[in-house]
Design a binder for these strands. Structure first.
Length: 257
DNA sequence: ATGGTAGCAGAGCTA
């Protein structure tokens, strides 16, 4: 089984790239972030033509998450408890067969002195508090997406250049560690303890061509899934395409239960 | 190079 997480940076602007990629790679489950469309405008027919059922929660211009799957999606939950209708659309969860999945778009934080930074930390704390309502540690569960946090220095192109920036600050990494303390494992790092590979590269200043990037797109899998993790592939080829997202899709391959 | 590019929206914000 193939599960993919991909921050597409607008599903409308990226529709051809995404559909072509999905046809070529044939994932069972697709977890999308930054769809940037209201629910009425999500391209369900295009995914339907490829055989996918989609659920989503989105808004105009910013944020937006989705789950697309070949099998039926059950028990769909959108956003965090206490989120009103105006809340940023950053989380969607569901169950496909026995597997519980969630697509997450963690706030960027912008800068350590921005009011968006405490919002990021508070949002992560709320997500941590919500985990017991999404699953139990012994269930097959994964929560994947754009965490906007590089877990360790090995996930950063240049730690010195990142001093004083978001994505690497100790409070952010502590918030990610708190999520993992629920029993969630970074699947890429599980299989590749020493590999340096990124999932996001800034559009500016030729960052992709220079491999100036961060690994911030993660598959966090429950203990029950750990023995089933076969391979994790960051498809940097997709980032090199014309009109590419600034994030690469990350493919998680699981063996059967 | 305190810049650079991309998306949305149609100026400035977000990333």
């Amino acid at each position: 089984m193939k599960v993919v997480t991909w921050n597409v940076n607008s599903i409308h602007a990226r529709l051809d790239n995404v559909l072509n990629w999905v046809e070529a790679n044939d994932p069972d489950i697709l977890l999308l972030q930054e769809t940037k469309v209201v629910d009425q405008e999500f391209p369900i027919d295009d995914f339907g033509d490829l055989g996918y059922d989609c659920v989503f929660t989105g808004e105009r211009s910013y944020n937006g998450v989705a789950i697309c799957a070949k099998d039926e999606i059950h028990e769909v939950k959108k956003n965090l408890p206490g989120d009103g209708p105006e809340a940023q659309k950053r989380l969607i969860a569901g169950r496909i067969g026995q597997l519980r999945v969630a697509s997450v778009y963690v706030p960027n934080g912008q800068a350590l002195d921005s009011d968006k930074y405490p919002f990021k930390l508070e949002w992560l704390a709320r997500l941590r508090a919500y985990l017991p309502e999404l699953t139990r540690p012994d269930q097959p569960f994964l929560i994947s997406g754009d965490y906007n946090i590089a877990p360790a220095d090995l996930d950063v192109w240049d730690t010195k250049a990142m001093v004083g920036s978001t994505h690497v600050s100790p409070p952010e990494r502590a918030a990610l560690a708190a999520l993992q303390e629920f029993g969630l494992v970074d699947a890429f790092r599980l299989l590749e303890p020493n590999k340096r590979q990124y999932s996001w590269w800034d559009y500016r200043a030729g960052c992709f061509q220079r491999d100036v990037g961060l690994r911030i797109d993660l598959h966090l899998v429950s203990q029950a899934l750990v023995p089933r993790v076969r391979r994790v592939t960051i498809d940097t080829q997709a980032r090199a395409e014309e009109k590419a997202s600034d994030h690469a899709p990350v493919i998680l391959e699981l063996s059967d239960a």
